[in-house]
Nucleic acid binder design. Structure first.
Lengths: 134, 134
DNA sequence: ATTTTTATTTAAAATCATTCTAATCTACTT
DNA sequence: AAGTAGATTAGAATGATTTTAAATAAAAAT
C-alpha cells in the first residue's frame, strides 16, 4: 500500500492522516493477517527506524479498532477468574455486570479444525459468549 | 462441608490445612458453582469476618488450581491482542511461543446454547484452542 | 512436650500492562 | 499566515498480580 493509499484509508475512516498513524497503518495493513500486541508493534516500529511513543501505539490501536480496521481479542475482562466447576464447559460473559454463567460443554461442537501445527497438541478449548444489554 | 471434611479435602490434595486455606475452601466448595476473582473472594472473606491477606488469596487460588480443585479461566495470555482480520473467526493460541493462528469461523458450530438471559443479547463468540508442545 | 525443620502467611515493595494528564505540537480551516 | 481543534508525548498514575524477606504456624524429630 502506497503512502497515499494509506492516507486515503485513514481519511475514509474519519482519522487524520498523521505521520504516526500512517506509519502504523502501513505496518499493519500490508495485506497479510497480523496479530499484534502494543509491545510487539513497538518492536516492529523500532526495527523500522520510526520513533513514536507507546501511548500513541495504544491510542492508535484503539482508534483503529473503533474505526473497524482492527479487532480486539480479549478474554474475560482484565482479571483472572477461577471456577469451582472443573469439568470441561464454557461461559457466557455478561459485560453489563461482569458476571459469568456456565455453558455445558455439550452445547459447543468443534469440527474441521485446521490441522494442529506439527509438534503441538491441543490442551484445552475455551469458548466465551459475550452478552450485552439490549 | 464440615471443618473436618475441609481438612481432609486439603490433605487429600497435599495441602496443609491451615486456618486460611480452610476458610477459603469452605467458602469456595459449598457445593454451588462459583466464579470468583481474587478481589471478589476478598470481599466474601471480609464479609464473613475472616482476616487474611490478598497475597494469601492469590497464593491459595493458584495452589487450589494446581491441585485440581479449581479451574482458571484466562483469555490469551495477559495482554490485549489486536487482529487485522476483522471477520468473525477464532484462534489457536500456541502457549509455547505465545503466537496466534487463525481458525475459520466455519470450523466451530454452536448449538443448543442455554437460553440467553432476559434482556441480554449475544454480542460475539470467541473460541480459543490452546496448544502446547508435545 | 520441646525443639527443630519446613511450609505458610504477611505487609510492603516491585512489576507489568495500560491509561491518564497536562503540555507541546501538527493538521486542517479561514 | 493565524487560529483552532485534534494528536502526540513524557512521565505520572492506576490496577492486577507477583515477589521479597521477615514473622508465624504446622509437622516431624527428639
Amino acid at each position: 500500500m502506497t503512502a497515499s493509499q494509506t492516507t486515503d484509508l485513514l481519511r475514509q475512516h474519519g482519522l487524520r492522516p498523521t505521520r504516526q498513524r500512517i506509519a502504523l497503518a502501513s505496518l499493519l495493513f500490508d495485506g497479510h493477517p497480523r496479530h499484534v500486541t502494543a509491545e510487539s508493534l513497538k518492536e516492529q516500529v523500532k526495527a523500522s527506524g520510526i520513533k513514536l511513543s507507546l501511548a500513541t501505539i495504544y491510542n492508535t490501536l484503539h482508534q483503529f479498532t473503533a474505526a473497524g480496521l482492527l479487532k480486539e481479542i480479549k478474554g474475560i475482562s482484565d482479571v483472572t477468574w477461577f471456577d469451582t466447576n472443573i469439568n470441561s464447559h464454557h461461559h457466557f460473559w455478561d459485560t453489563s455486570n461482569n458476571h459469568l454463567i456456565d455453558i455445558p460443554a455439550s452445547s459447543i461442537t468443534i469440527s474441521n479444525l485446521p490441522k494442529t501445527p506439527a509438534g503441538k497438541v491441543i490442551n484445552g478449548v475455551e469458548v466465551i459468549v459475550r452478552l450485552t444489554d439490549g
